[in-house]
Structure formats: structure tokens, C-alpha cells
């Protein structure tokens, strides 16, 4: 039995009327692995992440997530797979009508966790990302960097098996970027596989994690651990 939680085989995607974003992406994501996903703007990093959290259907190829063939599985299984994935969106995607603490607790709530427990865990995490004073604040009154930290806290609160982060340090200073990287690494040590799509060279330089580089619609050099047998 393989240790891959995701297997992408010959994956490609093309939006209507434009050239394909990527055409033949093949690699695997091992349980508890840590990768940076890099590549020039428009290379399809965000689209690839979107496919991994089942927000976009591949035009061709196959994608297996947690042992399920995502193209053939029943739609009712989608939320169950998503519950194993934490996503940090580039545009944060916070619910503006909910307080920060409620936004962070959302993944726990949809899993049916008790309200008190939800608040306690969300509070702890928000304190860790430096937003302990902003629990009952609404997102529109936060800065870009604060919103990003809320989005990160929301993505990791349920300790997902796979964490997908799309430019998670794009709106924070270097210090906070390093702190966040440390958070991702901590989570990774607990068994969460992490994929960070980033442009931040300092972030990549300061860590020894392997890169997946999307170039000309494919990933040319695969780290050994991602090669599918």
C-alpha cells in the first residue's frame, strides 16, 4: 500500500478558449511531506491547488485523493475529503458577517465539534498567530496581514491531513512569515502534509523542503519522494 495521500497522473487543465494551463502533471504527495510549489505567475499554481481541494475538475488525467478517484467518486464524498484538507486562500475567503473567532472555528463547527471546544481552540490558535486581542472583531476591520493570519488559523485548526497554502505569506512581514513557516512545520511534524505555493524566495531559502516547480505546463524536476512508481 502506497503512502501517497494524493496521486496526480497526467493531470491537465484548460479553461474554455484559452491555451491549457498545465498539460501533464504527474506526481504524488506523501503522507507527512512538505513541499514548496513554485513557478512563474500564471503557471497554474493556484489552479493546481484548486484541483487538490476539489474546487476545479481536471480537463484530463486522473487525481486520487485519500484513496478515492475524485473523477469517479460520488459527490456526497466531496465534503468528507475536504474535511481532511486545510486551505489558505490567496484572497483569504473570510466570512465578513462572522467574528474572527467564529471564522477560525468554522471547520470545527461543520464537523460537529461542541461550541465551547470550538471557541477554546480558535482562541488558542488566534493567540498564537498574534490576534488574541481580536477574537470578537469582524474581518472588514482587519488589515491584510491580520486577515491572512485568520485565514491560516482557520486552515490549520482542524489539524488536516493535507494543508494547501496559496501565497500564505504574501501580506505579512518577514518576521511573521518565518513564524508562520514555523507553524506549518510544527503542523507537518504532527503528520500533516503541506504544500505551499509561493513566490517568496526567502521563505524557500530558509528551509530545506523540496520544491515542485511548474514550468511550461508541467513539473520537470520531481523530488524523489514525489515520483509515482
Amino acid at each position: 500500500m502506497s503512502d501517497f495521500i494524493a496521486q496526480l497522473i497526467g493531470l491537465g487543465h484548460q479553461y474554455k478558449g484559452v491555451p491549457e494551463i498545465f498539460k501533464d502533471v504527474t506526481f504524488g504527495i506523501e503522507k507527512g511531506s512538505f513541499h514548496f510549489l513554485t513557478g512563474p505567475s500564471g503557471s497554474g499554481k493556484s489552479s493546481l491547488l484548486k484541483m487538490l481541494y476539489l474546487g476545479l475538475k481536471p480537463t484530463w488525467g486522473s487525481l486520487q485523493l485519500f484513496g478515492e478517484d475524485t473523477l469517479k467518486m460520488q459527490s456526497r464524498l466531496v465534503p468528507l475529503l475536504r474535511q481532511k484538507i486545510g486551505v489558505i486562500f490567496q484572497e483569504f475567503k473570510l466570512l465578513e458577517h462572522l467574528k474572527v473567532v467564529d471564522n477560525v472555528a468554522l471547520p470545527l463547527r461543520v464537523r460537529g465539534v461542541d461550541a465551547k471546544q470550538c471557541r477554546k481552540q480558535a482562541q488558542e490558535l488566534l493567540e498564537w498567530v498574534g490576534l488574541g486581542e481580536s477574537l470578537d472583531v469582524y474581518p472588514p476591520s482587519l488589515s491584510g496581514g491580520q486577515k491572512q493570519r485568520v485565514a491560516i488559523a482557520r486552515a490549520v485548526i482542524a489539524q488536516p491531513e493535507l494543508l494547501l497554502a496559496d501565497e500564505p505569506t504574501g501580506n505579512v512581514d518577514d518576521n511573521m512569515a518565518m513564524k508562520l513557516l514555523y507553524l506549518f512545520e510544527e503542523l507537518n511534524k504532527r503528520g500533516t502534509a503541506v504544500i505551499i505555493a509561493t513566490h517568496n524566495p526567502r521563505l524557500i531559502e530558509r528551509s530545506a523542503h523540496p520544491h515542485l516547480t511548474l514550468t511550461e505546463g508541467t513539473i520537470l524536476q520531481l523530488p524523489k519522494c514525489t515520483v509515482l512508481s
Binding site: Y53, G55, R76, V78, P79, L80, R82, Q83, I85, V87, K93, L94, L95, H97, L106, P107, V110, R111, R154, A158
Partner: peptide, 14 residues
């Protein structure tokens, strides 16, 4: 909002 709920794992029933 529904899209976000769905992305964090909310079922249709939720």
C-alpha cells in the same frame, strides 16, 4: 458564503 462553507468541509445537509 456557501462556497466557503463547502470548501471548509460543510456537507450539503449542514
Amino acid at each position: 458564503v456557501i462556497e466557503i462553507l463547502s470548501l471548509v468541509g460543510a456537507t450539503n445537509s449542514y
